[in-house]
Design a binder for these strands. Structure first.
Length: 477
DNA sequence: AAAAAAG
């Protein structure tokens, strides 16, 4: 099967070819003909299956057949996150470069002016996150009555994020004689209901989960105690031939603190999470794409769909709570046939979560064991630790301190240089000034190296540093 | 348990 067999226009085939694709993925081969026949569609598919192109390509041909009108977009694509919406837009631009089609990207966190202007001029396709679309709609900037093609992307994610009422509201503003395409990785009850309500005789397409079968990703779980996570991460970053890596954490606060810690340890690291303003999010992503930083600490905002070329490693600094998220996260590496490595840190408290991951993926993730040589004396680590203790020991608290300091000191010590180098020992004053838990691991005794790393339990004596929040909670009756 | 999305 070739793209040429799918009845796409010549202009489109050219841009597909220019993008380097010859053969459609299974979902593209199945979905494109259905969409061309104006059928409604439910597609069960994960990101990484070629899902986006499966609707973008036929849409371009369909839209090329008509004419745009001011404020009356002809089609609408809904995506759960801004980054995903941006990526869909990039796809549209890329594949549609031989067509005269206008697009508007309606996402929050950026000025409305340009978006409104685009709407006024008339667009063929709107690509939007629900919030901003609703906002503009309520301001009377959009008429959806001419919108005869609707795509709901990542519907289950939309459900998780509480967007279903918004989607229902939007669907009701669209003409009833329209084509609706719904993409979802899973089909929970509410999504089924949504489909029943807003789709007409939909054709159902299902393709296999990609990441589970992605043999290009070498997966490992690493048993650690919470306190040892950062040290283990630094160790792996230095010793596992990391070109660039996305490090996922479950909480935004963890993302912030971990990113700051990595910078302080001399890594060229950045961060992305939903509390950052949109321009910072884009800027960090851009630095990472350009390899000006090679480590991106991220919340799950970056877990799904994000397409960065050539990510060599994914680290789950926290085991994800939802097994689906595991699949999405590690899917950021091993893309387009490249090799990738994925490490998941597992504490005792994560036993159930990791079991769920293994159940979902159907594979037993092999534990990562450091070689003896490594565990006794990691060559570069030794001197690093010496250095570290010299710098960090003074910072170690003598007693417990208040736990809730404001989370944001600007971590402006970014060092853009190759990762393993230690950086300055400067700013001791600034660091002393912060009564914060930003470095629980620095308190570890220099003389207790690697062997405690996989110890089963945490003894009270270990707690001469601040108690990580989750442990403190789990210790309660 | 969190994160995400309008501001």
């Amino acid at each position: 099967m070739k793209f040429a067999d799918l009845g796409l226009s010549d202009e489109l085939l050219q841009s597909v070819k220019a993008a380097g694709y010859e053969e459609p993925t299974p979902i593209q081969a199945e979905a494109i003909p259905q969409i061309q026949m104006m059928k409604d569609l439910i597609a069960i598919a994960q990101t990484g299956t070629g899902k986006t192109a499966s609707f973008v390509l036929p849409m371009i041909d369909i839209l090329a057949a008509g004419r745009r009108r001011a404020r009356m977009p002809r089609s609408l694509i809904l995506a759960p996150t801004r980054e995903l919406a941006m990526q869909v837009a990039e796809n549209f631009e890329n594949y549609g470069k031989n067509h005269d089609l206008k697009m508007a990207l309606l996402i929050g966190g950026v000025q409305m002016g340009e978006q409104v202007k685009a709407l006024d001029d008339g667009v063929d396709v709107l690509i939007a996150t629900p919030g901003r679309l609703m906002d503009l709609f309520e301001r009377g900037k959009i008429l959806l009555t001419g919108c005869e093609l609707l795509v709901i992307d990542e519907a289950d994610r939309m459900l998780d994020m509480g967007f279903i009422p918004d989607i229902e509201f939007i669907c009701e503003k669209l003409p009833t004689n329209r084509q609706t395409l719904l993409f979802s990785a899973t089909m929970p009850g509410p999504i089924k209901k949504l489909a029943d309500k807003f789709l007409t005789n939909p054709k159902l397409i299902e393709v296999a989960r990609p990441a589970t079968a992605n043999i290009n990703i070498a997966q490992h779980k690493v048993h650690v105690t919470p306190r040892k996570k950062r040290e283990m991460l630094r160790y792996l970053l230095k010793n596992d031939n990391v070109q660039n890596a996305i490090v996922f954490a479950n909480r935004k606060t963890t993302v912030r603190e971990l990113s700051k810690s990595l910078k302080q340890h001399g890594f060229a690291s950045g961060e992305i999470h939903g509390d950052m303003d949109q321009s910072s999010r884009m800027a960090e992503l851009d630095l990472f794409r350009k390899n000006e930083i090679n480590i991106l600490v991220a919340s799950d905002v970056a877990a799904r769909g994000l397409d960065v070329k050539g990510v060599s490693h994914v680290f789950n600094f926290d085991t994800p709570w939802h097994p689906d998220d595991y699949v999405h996260r590690i899917g950021r590496t091993g893309r387009a046939g490249a090799k990738g490595r994925a490490f998941t840190f597992v504490t005792d408290a994560d036993a159930e979560a990791i079991a769920n991951v293994e159940k979902l993926t159907g594979i037993k993730i092999p534990p990562y064991e450091m070689s003896d040589g490594d565990s006794k004396k990691p060559v570069r680590k030794a001197e690093d630790d010496a250095d570290k203790s010299a710098e960090d020991k003074p910072e170690k608290p003598k007693r417990s301190r208040r736990k809730a300091a404001p989370a944001e000191e600007p971590a402006n010590e970014t060092v853009h240089e190759e990762a393993p180098q230690r950086k300055s020992r400067r700013k001791p004053s600034a660091r002393n000034a912060e009564p914060k838990t930003s470095e629980p691991d620095v308190a570890e005794p220099q003389s207790a190296p690697r062997k405690t790393e996989r110890s089963e339990s945490v003894k009270p004596d270990d707690w001469n540093g601040p108690v990580p929040e989750f442990l403190a909670i789990s210790a309660l009756p």
